[in-house]
Design a protein around this nucleic acid. Structure first.
Length: 952
RNA sequence: GCGCGGGUGUCGGAGCGGUCAAACGAGCUAGGCUUAGGACCUAGUAGCUUAGUGCUUACGCAGGUUCAAAUCCUGUCCCGCGCACCA
């Protein structure tokens, strides 16, 4: 029994020792530079990470076998907040995080004390990076990847940082950067912007920023300020709600006096407003008074509603009982209860006069939407909060998309809700009656327990994709790029269309400082858009010990853009001219990259930014050439997640299946761009199958000798398969390619082996092709088989077999199929007549004229489908009756038309040639006659390649 | 809501105007090989019918275009993903 694990280890070691995948400039060879996004450091690698790299490896190994100089590099991403988050978590004694990282470390380190020590060291982010990167490299290598690791780096390395600085200088020069106001989620205690991973449960229950419209209702010398998501319902406003149990504040906000909740006043101070609290105003004191409406000259009564929460928005709520279920119920409660009104000292009759105003009609609701939905959902009380919430959402959803404003809405009558909303906001803002207020979509706290609110940054750095000419250039670049599959091109175009301004720096996280405003750190998606340009030169930078100080913008201008003179730069930087030139030569040889293979969801962000970044930084000839996509990977039918326990790590993989089985499964289970479902039971089967192939080929190599093969059909089919595999791989159709090497070739071999003829020659012929063809998919086993055949060197760097078009012989294949289907038919008949044993089979070949007819018919059928016309064209008086019957049936069932039409003589020769074989197979005598010489009625049925059969 | 992708047998999935109940794989059934097999090999696997290679039926649902549609068009239902400051 072969020790497959040992085979894998052996070849991985040899590849490394002999530096098989360390590539350099080779002027004799065409280069091919392929890459895939660098992984983020966050723990063990799993099969999700493995998909992209494995696909790249399979494809690039094919390209290598075709004789190109293939560069497949890999680096690591550490920018942003996640690594920092791990450090902070461990520093703050976050039990969950500590346990999680202990588990990760335990996978590599057995001594528990050591584990403890290592995890504690993670309070320093670089220790995390330095611990995991070697492990990740090892795990990647265990997949059998042909990566040139000399060129590896991290996004925190000085070379990378200097590159990004150069990039941002370029952006600045071109006017692609701008500063402006921007709302962000903000922690009051951290005094900083926060992202998903800084917020408690932020990953499972994301917090969004919601934009409210503030409406300012004049109230004495001040304004009562409410916040609403539905300014479009302004004309339905009937009253205002305050919470009678809390106190509000009157505050000076940018010079005006506003009445809002205390919490709101504080939030306003974070949102670009100057706030000064003047005095407290109790909710109770407002009851029964009224303020001025905004859209008409009337008063809105202030009524009590305990649902007004001071921590949400302004704590004051506008009432639209026609369309808001809450308002409808709250008003109804007051109107229905004189007692309640009395309690608050309100005039019940006055309240009873308040009527909902019809303002909007939609496809789901009449103008009394709130009333309707309450009835429909059986809402009878304000206590049914969940239902009320749901009802509100439902109405908003329908009205937003299908609602139209009615004639009660003044100049907005007839407008759609969506449209009116925008107009009303604009108009009110112009009249200074409204403002904007941001609120979180749910109450949230940062991990240290501090409240998360929305703050407006007034000097946020943006990348402005709409800056002059940028979009146009990027679109042009996209046009000359190959997109695989091409269906994603349209999506790129759409994304380019809506890309606008994007914040590109943050105040925290690991990364590169903005060179001209160093308190900002370049955001982690913006800092990883041109790093591929480092791969061609990184190894040289290390070799020549180039320091960070030497990696000035002029350096990159020279290496990347050819600006300046070597001699000058050499003097300036203190680097040898020859070294500088060598670095540049390396860049010029390898760049641009020929392909980037990526996860489809990167399209709208990373890949689009990458294209923009390249157009901003590099000339036309250095733009990316091809982008290819792969799909999602799920495990056992579900998204991979720790809680589901279905995460398969590369270590699991290596232990249970080995690289070659994994690679075979990955490529064979689904097409590259489709979602892939990892099922361990299926992988198990693939593993067995791959090992079986190994055994079969191994056996072949024991008895192989170059020689002639008489079976033309076999050779033809194999050549056809080589062609198919080649064409499939050229299109990166890994699934079809793997079908050929895993199944079709095996089947062909088994089929021909059964005949037992020319075996050594067949073995030689097949193994010299099959083994190289297997290499991209199962490189380890292929190397072993290559060595078993006493070949020299590595099959990894051997040649892909060339198919010989001349050997592809349709006729030979067709003849064999004819014989096979003949055998099937005999068996079928044998079953029908229930004869255990046959004594004789008579083959009655179709009469000669039918062959002539069929040939003619086939020719005509290629251009004409009309039965009437066809009949006229192929009519032959002598056989009119038969032809009249035959033509319609052939048109209806085209399967009766043979692929290749032989002549009667040829077909007779074929059957004679196979006579002995047939007799053996059917264990009876076989007699061959032509229909012309047969008196049998059956003879009538015979067709070319479908002889009539008589069994005895 | 907008954008994109998808709905085919027991399952994974091919096919994307014209040779086929539907590639290839898996599962299942029977047989073989074998000490054994969860290894491997052979055959079968929609239904009906038959001395035959025939018929009927499927490609989410409903229509349409065509001599011809799973494949093109229209409508409709369902599912997945993305909608930005997050790697």
């Amino acid at each position: 029994m072969v020790d497959f694990k040992a085979v894998q280890d052996k070849w991985q070691k040899k590849w490394k020792e002999e530096k098989v995948f360390e590539v350099d400039i080779d002027p004799k060879k065409e280069k091919f530079f392929i890459n895939t996004p660098y992984p983020y450091i966050s723990g063990s690698l799993h099969i999700g990470h493995a998909r992209a790299v494995t696909e790249v490896d399979v494809y690039s190994r094919f390209i290598r076998l075709q004789g190109k100089n293939v560069l497949f590099p890999m680096a690591f991403h550490i920018s942003g907040t996640p690594v920092l988050g791990i450090s902070l978590g461990i520093q703050n004694g976050d039990e969950k995080k500590i346990a999680q990282y202990k588990e990760y470390v335990r996978a590599y380190v057995s001594n528990e004390k050591e584990v403890e020590k290592i995890v504690q060291s993670f309070v320093e982010p670089w220790n995390i990076v330095n611990f995991f990167i070697p492990k990740m490299k090892e795990e990647y290598s265990s997949l059998g990847l042909g990566v040139d690791w000399r060129r590896s780096f991290t996004s925190g390395d000085v070379e990378h940082q200097k590159l990004v600085e150069w990039q941002f200088h370029k952006y600045k020069e071109k006017g692609y950067l701008m500063q402006g106001k921007y709302p962000v989620l903000y922690s009051k205690t951290l005094k900083n912007a926060v992202g998903e991973d800084d917020i408690s449960d932020g990953d499972t229950n994301p917090v969004e920023k919601k934009e409210f419209t503030l409406m300012k209702f004049p109230f004495g010398d001040a304004f009562l300020v409410i916040a609403t998501l539905r300014p479009d319902t302004m004309f339905g406003q009937t009253n205002l709600w305050v919470n009678p149990d809390i106190s509000y504040v009157k505050a000076k906000v940018n010079g005006e006096k506003w009445i809002v909740s205390r919490q709101c006043a504080e939030k306003l101070s974070f949102q670009d407003k100057k706030v000064e609290i003047i005095e407290e105003v109790s909710g109770k004191s407002l009851l029964g008074k009224s303020c001025k409406a905004l859209h008409k000259n009337s008063e809105l009564l202030i009524l009590p509603y305990k649902g007004c929460k001071p921590e949400i928005a302004t704590g004051l709520v506008i009432s639209v009982p026609s369309n808001a279920p809450y308002d409808y119920m709250a008003l109804k409660e007051l109107q229905d209860s004189a007692q309640l009104c009395q309690k608050y000292g309100l005039d019940h009759t006055k309240i009873k006069q308040i009527q909902a105003i019809s303002i909007i009609e939609s496809e789901g609701f009449s103008s009394e939407a709130a009333k309707e939905i309450c009835a429909r959902m059986k809402i009878t009380s304000l206590q049914q909060e969940k239902l009320l919430e749901e009802a509100t959402k439902e109405i908003y959803k329908i009205e937003f998309h299908t609602g139209k404003l009615l004639s009660t809405c003044g100049k907005y009558a007839g407008k759609s809700v969506q449209h009116a909303q925008q107009m009303i906001i604009e108009d009110l803002k112009k009249e200074k009656k409204a403002d904007i207020f941001y609120e979180t979509s749910r109450p949230a706290v940062s991990r240290d327990g501090g409240e998360v609110i929305v703050a407006i940054m007034d000097n946020q750095w943006f990348l402005d994709f709409n800056a002059k000419g940028w979009k146009k250039e990027a679109s042009q670049s996209l046009k000359s790029m190959e997109i695989v599959p091409n269906k994603y091109r349209k999506q790129f175009e759409d994304v380019f269309e809506w890309l606008d301004k994007r914040p590109c720096a943050r105040l925290r996280g690991i990364g590169t400082q903005l060179p001209f405003d160093t308190k900002w750190v370049i955001e982690s998606l913006s800092d990883s858009t041109i790093y591929m340009s480092l791969y061609p030169i990184q190894e040289r930078l290390k070799k020549y010990k180039v320091t960070g100080e030497q990696l000035t913008p002029e350096f990159f201008d020279f290496v990347f853009l050819g600006k300046g003179k070597v001699a000058d730069l050499s003097k300036k930087l203190g680097l040898k001219s020859s070294e500088l030139q060598d670095i540049k030569d390396n860049f010029d040889y390898w760049y641009p990259f020929d392909q980037r293979h990526t996860f489809q969801p990167h399209l709208a962000n990373h890949l689009s930014f990458m294209i923009f970044a390249h157009t901003a930084c590099f000339p036309k000839e250095k733009q990316p050439k091809k982008i290819s996509f792969h799909g999602l990977i799920i495990s056992e039918g579900m998204k991979m997640s720790k809680s589901k326990g279905n995460v398969v790590t590369l270590m699991d993989l290596n232990k249970s299946y080995g690289a070659d089985a994994f690679r075979a499964f990955l490529c064979n289970s689904t097409s590259v761009d489709a979602m892939m479902n990892w099922q361990s039971s299926e992988v198990e089967k693939t593993k067995k199958h791959v090992e079986n192939i190994f055994t079969v080929v191994e056996e072949m190599t024991k008895n192989e000798r170059e020689g002639t093969i008489s079976n033309k059909a076999f050779v033809s089919r194999v050549e056809g398969l080589i062609k198919r595999a080649t064409l499939s791989l050229e299109e990166m159709n890994l699934r079809d390619y793997s079908n050929v090497v895993l199944f079709d070739l095996l089947r062909e071999y088994q089929r021909v082996a059964r005949l037992g003829k020319d075996l050594p020659a067949i073995h030689y012929y097949l193994s010299t092709r099959w083994v190289p063809m297997l290499t991209p998919l199962c490189p380890h086993y292929a190397e072993e088989l290559w060595a078993l055949s006493k070949n020299k060197g590595f099959v990894s760097t051997a040649s892909w077999p060339k198919y010989n078009e001349k050997l592809i012989d349709e006729k030979a294949e067709f003849v064999e199929e004819t014989i096979e289907s003949f055998v099937d038919d005999v068996r079928e008949i044998q079953k029908l007549v229930k004869k255990e044993k046959l004594s004789k089979v008579v083959v009655i070949l179709a009469p000669s004229w039918k062959y002539t007819f069929m040939k003619e018919f086939k020719k005509e059928f290629a251009k004409e489908r009309d039965i009437g016309v066809l009949l006229k064209k192929v009519m032959d008086k002598e056989h009119a009756k038969e032809i009249t019957a035959l033509v319609p049936s052939l048109v209806k069932n085209t399967s009766k038309i043979p692929f290749v039409v032989l002549t009667q003589k040829e077909e007779e020769a074929v059957f004679k040639e196979y006579k002995a074989q047939l007799e053996k197979k059917l264990s009876c005598t076989v007699e061959i006659v032509c229909a012309e010489k047969s008196a049998e009625a059956k003879a009538q049925q015979a067709l070319p390649s479908k002889p009539a059969i008589l069994v005895q």
